[in-house]
């Protein structure tokens, strides 16, 4: 169904990559790198929010999908000489597959225990990658020299070109996200968040829907992981660490969970805060923690809700003036 919300989601999906490309074109290499980083983490966050914000399931396992996507891309391109885009496609598939598996296992328990189970599963993956598969993954050293994709003879080692590629992928992924959220499937997920019992009584197989949400979410995580590996030209076990799941959670909560723009806003906020605060002090995670606690207490809707409230106030004023 075409609604106002859907239209604004589509507009947002088009405007963000355009703005990113425009800002990147005007800025230097450092700015281009930062913007690409923000776009990649935004891909991760919008996927995460499909599970967390839309379906209301807290996962602490997303680092596994993200990291496995990164390692998949790195290993396929480095060891098997595969070219960038097919490797990225396989990274997406691996992320999705792993997430489906996580969902199938973790969704056997309820509520907050899903968070614990996904965390334990992600720790298992982290351990496998860091210790058990050392021969393939490089252990704690990670894998250096991960190539950027090669396509149509364009040099993607140029940060500007790579930014445009990532922005293009963001456009597609964000449009897909808009469609998914406003499809009947997305509506059912929303219904599950509001009341599982009610959704179940309406005849929906809620477990199937939730596992499917995990699968889609994992695809986004895998894509983001692969792209980040190519951006940094490095993948390491930190990408599968629980703190990565924590970071994407913080971004989503700061920005506003369950909203279309929220996760992206959160990433922008997180990364710019990190850039400015880590220059000032080494304790930026503490500052972040305090911000996070305050937002949880006083602004559960995140920055997006603040924006929406201001917009509504001005809108109402404009209405009255008329």
């Amino acid at each position: 169904m075409i609604t106002g919300r859907f239209v604004s989601a589509v507009l947002f999906s088009i405007l963000v990559p355009l703005l990113a490309v425009a800002l990147g074109g005007a800025g230097d290499v450092g700015t281009q790198y930062l913007i690409t980083l923000i776009l990649i983490w935004s891909l991760f966050a919008i996927g995460f929010d499909l599970v967390f914000g839309v379906a209301g399931i807290l996962s602490f396992g997303h680092a596994a999908f993200f990291g496995c996507g990164a390692y998949c891309y790195a290993i396929l391109t480095l060891d098997y000489g595969m070219s960038g885009l097919p490797a990225l496609a396989l990274a997406v598939m691996l992320g999705s597959l792993l997430a489906t598996l996580f969902g199938a296992i973790a969704l056997r328990v309820n509520g907050v225990f899903v968070a614990l189970t996904t965390l334990a599963l992600a720790q298992l993956i982290h351990h496998l990658i860091e210790v058990k598969l050392k021969n393939i993954t490089g252990g704690t050293d990670g894998l250096a020299g991960v190539p950027r994709p090669d396509l149509w003879g364009i040099n993607f080692y140029d940060d500007w070109n790579y930014l445009v590629l990532v922005a293009g992928l963001f456009l597609l992924a964000s449009l897909a996200n808009a469609v998914i959220r406003h499809s009947p499937f997305g509506e059912v997920l929303r219904a599950v968040r509001q009341s599982e019992t009610r959704a179940q009584q309406l005849g929906y197989d809620i477990r199937l829907y939730k596992v499917a949400a995990f699968g889609i979410s994992g695809a986004y995580a895998g894509l983001a992981g692969g792209l980040l590996g190519a951006l940094m030209m490095f993948v390491g076990p930190d990408m599968t660490r629980w703190t990565t799941s924590g970071d994407v959670l913080i971004m989503t909560v700061l920005g506003g969970r369950g909203t279309f723009a929220g996760p992206v806003l959160g990433v922008v906020l997180f990364e710019t805060l990190k850039e400015s605060a880590s220059a000032l002090s080494n304790h930026w995670y503490g500052v972040l923690g305090i911000t996070f606690v305050l937002v949880t207490l006083f602004m559960p809707g995140g920055v997006a809700s603040l924006g929406a409230a201001i917009f509504r106030r001005f809108w109402n004023k404009a209405e009255k003036m008329r």
């Binding site: 807290l58 924590g246 996070f292 949880t296």
Partner: peptide, 18 residues
């Protein structure tokens, strides 16, 4: 929601560790 309390205790980890 219960998830909110989990978020809060997660934020506490960041603060306490720092």
């Amino acid at each position: 929601d219960h998830v909110e309390q989990l978020l809060m205790t997660f934020g506490l980890i960041l603060i306490l560790e720092e």
